[in-house]
Design a binder for these strands. Structure first.
Length: 493
RNA sequence: CGGGAGGUAGUUCAGCCCGGUAGAAUACGUGGUUUGGGACCACGGGGUCGCAGGUUCGAAUCCUGUCCUCCCGACCA
């Protein structure tokens, strides 16, 4: 009855769509490639973005806001950057509509209102920001600039998927300016670390920190680092990127500073971003065939209390009293909790509904429980039921939420580790990819040609060169040429 | 952007081939009985059949165009 979810086994893509739609996270919109993020989904994103925002501020960054529109001439300035994004830009060419003289009630673009220079809707903000930084920076005393912005961006994608790839999406983009290369490189790595910590501690999502290959790196960057996670279907998902931009944007926008020796130098730059794709990641990594499974630390609602109502008015008022007391205790412990005493749905319906929405802990309170001085406590991740004494219920739930958070991380990590395979022959490479999926740790000769050839043959790409890779002599999986370390391959979203 | 499927009540879908009063389930409203895994009874409200043209006495149904979605590819966070 009610909302059915397609099982993972039957159709993984449809399962994911069902979760997002039926779990109340988002809806399709009337606009091609764009989604409506619903309150439950936005609340999840807020819990994630709020925490990231705290972590950015703890590492010395401040928020600012730059324009949505980027003059085309700005975007052109950094050549690699321009080439990388040109294919997916939305362009504003006019600034006015007028009534259609040939069709009553319709509007047309006013041909008189053509912009002298087209405006590009930002696919990312390096261009407009570096054009601005030029005015902010004269001396080494003006550096570093450590700025982040929370914004929407538009990339005109051919094929979209809820949260994972939409034409418009929400994200944050950090843009920093530094006096030295060393400092910029350190910043790049520091922010990669922030993303990794966030993913692991809050999203309960184990990630691999690594360096992107030349062909996978950001358009305009010297080096791109990313965190890579593994989804339940064995495909990889990039969950955050941090770029060392060198002096590329400083040179393109002529941003120089006077150093202590009174000499002009170009500024060193970084940028780093994470998007609403993280919502897709957390959904896909943990959920099951009954709905969303959300980590307690970012769940929009952590605990729901469901009364098993009784005809007996005395028993009913005891249930209400106990539920309200419990809510006070949990709120005092900084836990979000809801008492669902809406009489229009029966308990069984509510059980299914809150499982669908991924609420980590459910407490059922009935007359029978109160007689025994207990409540039924059920954890969403394992569905395990426990009868807990009312006297220690609040403290038990606090501990339980912590356990769920840890268990979810450990479960995801066991899966990830079990699906990371060291492979040393081409036959094994193809076989592992097809039969098992996941990450494949293998040697690569370091050339873009080989990388492309592997992608052509298997659809697997190099997700990253892990930062913790040990130096080890070996032979390239495809060409047999010498290699000094393993890289991580996978099919990816 | 190529290939496939689809758009009819809030939702899932039937009806379309073979044109003739727009249906089911579920959801929703009211009243009542209920409440430990998606309750039951009674009554009730709800759809310009994605949109725009065309053919026809008559179009959800046939034709053309267009928009949107899903799946599979190519491209990408």
């Amino acid at each position: 009855m009610g909302k059915e979810i397609t099982s993972r086994q039957e159709d993984y893509s449809q399962w994911y769509n069902d979760l997002v739609i039926k779990g109340g996270l988002a809806d399709y919109s009337a606009v091609r490639g764009c989604m409506v993020i619903k309150p439950h989904g936005y609340s999840l994103w807020e819990n994630m973005s709020d925490q990231l925002d705290r972590m950015f501020k703890e590492t010395g960054h401040q928020n600012a806001y730059f324009p949505l529109f980027v003059p085309k001439s700005f975007l052109e300035k950094e050549e690699g950057h321009a080439e990388g994004f040109a294919k997916e830009c939305a362009v504003v060419t006019h600034y006015r509509l007028k009534a259609d003289p040939t069709s009553n009630g319709k509007l047309i673009v006013d041909p008189e209102a053509k912009l002298e220079e087209e405006l590009i809707i930002r696919p990312t903000s390096e261009a407009i920001i570096w054009n601005t930084y030029k005015d902010w920076i004269q001396s080494y005393r003006d550096l570093p600039i450590l700025v982040n912005q929370w914004a929407n961006v538009v990339r005109w994608e051919m094929r979209t998927r809820l949260f994972l790839r939409t034409a418009e999406f929400l994200w944050q983009e950090g843009h920093t300016a530094h006096a030295t290369k060393e400092e910029a490189v350190e910043e790049t790595k520091k922010m990669l670390g922030v993303y990794a910590t966030f993913a692991e501690e809050y999203m309960a999502l184990p990630v691999v920190r690594g360096l992107k290959t030349e062909s996978e790196k950001f358009a305009g960057a010297e080096d791109t680092y990313s965190i890579e996670a593994l989804m339940q279907d064995g495909k990889a998902l990039q969950c955050g990127t941090s770029h060392f931009l060198g002096q590329n944007f400083a040179k393109a926008f002529d941003v120089k500073f006077l150093n202590k020796e009174n000499q002009q130098e170009y500024v060193w730059a970084t940028s780093w971003g994470a998007s609403t794709r993280l919502v897709g990641a957390v959904v896909m990594a943990h959920s099951d065939d009954d709905g969303l499974v959300l980590p307690p630390r970012i769940a929009p609602l952590q605990v729901v209390i469901i009364p098993i109502s009784s005809k007996d008015a005395t028993a009913q008022s005891k249930i209400n009293d106990k539920a309200h007391q419990l809510m006070r205790e949990l709120k005092a412990a900084n836990i979000s909790v809801k008492y669902d005493n809406d009489d229009s749905n029966r308990p069984g319906w509510k059980f299914a509904e809150y499982e669908m929405k991924g609420v980590p802990v459910r407490i059922a309170l009935g007359a029978r429980d109160l007689q025994n001085n207990v409540a039924e406590v059920v954890r969403r991740d394992t569905k395990e039921k426990q009868s807990i004494s009312l006297d220690e219920l609040a403290s038990h739930v606090v501990k339980l939420l912590g356990n769920i958070q840890n268990d979810m991380f450990n479960k995801a990590k066991s899966y990830r580790d079990a699906h990371t395979t060291r492979v040393d022959s081409w036959d094994d490479f193809e076989k592992t990819l097809d039969e098992k999926g996941g990450f494949i740790s293998a040697h690569w000769d370091g050339t873009a040609e080989t990388e492309d050839a592997i992608k052509e043959k298997t659809k697997a790409t190099i997700r990253c060169i892990p930062l913790d890779a040990v130096k080890e002599n070996g032979k390239c999986i495809l060409t047999g040429k010498p290699s000094t370390q393993r890289v991580l391959f996978a099919r990816a979203y």
